[in-house]
Simulated assay, not measured.
Amino acid sequence: MKFNTSIPSGLKGHYLKEIELYRSYLQKNDLTRAWHHLERSHILGQSYPMEHSYTHWLMLKFGFSQRNIKEVFGQVIRLLVGGWKSFIDHVPIGNTGGSNVPPMKKMEMPPDLILILNNYRKGQ
């Protein structure tokens, strides 16, 4: 069994760029684009416990700010179980992480994220 403890540094750069874009759009009150970049950060970081949990933490805060009870509840559940699933690399590839999708549903990924992830999976 393979354990994931830390994200490769190059991949972390891509992950942090999505977090940066999320914050930028949130500051501009462009909530649709902000959420989009949170979803992308989830796809990139979901195989790594710290990044996976941090994205869900941001999604929880976003849910609170929008007074979205479904999102808040969904993120609490994901925060409780997501990190250990990452540690053992048992995550649904492409899942965007919001409470609008089942937690274990595999989803189609954007082509640019497929290229990024394939690049770093080979190097591990």
Rank of each mutant, 00 (worst) to 15 (best):
V76H: 02
T55G: 11
L44F: 14
N68R: 03
Q46K: 07
S99K: 03
G97L: 04
G63Y: 01
P92K: 04
K61D: 03
N100G: 09
G97E: 08
E20C: 05
T96V: 15
L31I: 09
I69K: 12
R23E: 08
S99I: 07
F62P: 12
V81R: 11
E39G: 03
S99V: 00
V72A: 12
R40Y: 06
Q46C: 14
Y48S: 01
P103R: 02
M107T: 03
E71G: 03
H90G: 09
L38P: 10
H42K: 12
L38D: 02
F62A: 03
P102D: 12
R78M: 12
F64A: 00
Y25C: 03
K61W: 07
V72G: 01
D30Y: 00
L80Q: 13
Y48I: 00
N100H: 09
A34C: 06
K85H: 10
H52V: 07
S86Q: 05
G97I: 08
I88G: 06
G74D: 14
H42L: 08
K70S: 06
V91T: 15
M107Q: 15
K61E: 07
I93C: 00
I77K: 13
S47C: 07
D30C: 03
G83W: 15
E71M: 10
M109F: 14
Y48D: 06
G82T: 02
S65C: 08
Q46Y: 15
H42C: 05
G45L: 11
H42W: 05
H42Q: 13
I43T: 00
I93M: 08
F62K: 12
E71K: 09
T32N: 04
G74A: 01
W84R: 02
F64E: 15
T32M: 00
K28M: 13
I43K: 01
K106Y: 13
I43N: 06
D89Q: 04
H36Y: 04
Y22D: 11
F87H: 11
F64I: 15
T55V: 11
N68H: 11
F73T: 15
N29F: 08
H36T: 12
L60S: 04
G94R: 04
Q27I: 03
I77M: 15
R78K: 05
Y54H: 13
P102C: 07
H56S: 05
P49A: 13
Y54E: 14
I93F: 10
G97M: 10
H37E: 04
L60D: 04
F62C: 02
H52P: 09
L21T: 07
L58C: 08
E51G: 06
V81G: 05
K70L: 11
S99C: 10
S41G: 10
E20R: 13
D30E: 01
V72C: 07
G63H: 00
P92C: 12
K85T: 11
W84V: 13
W35E: 08
R23G: 09
S65W: 06
F62I: 09
M59D: 02
P49D: 05
I69R: 09
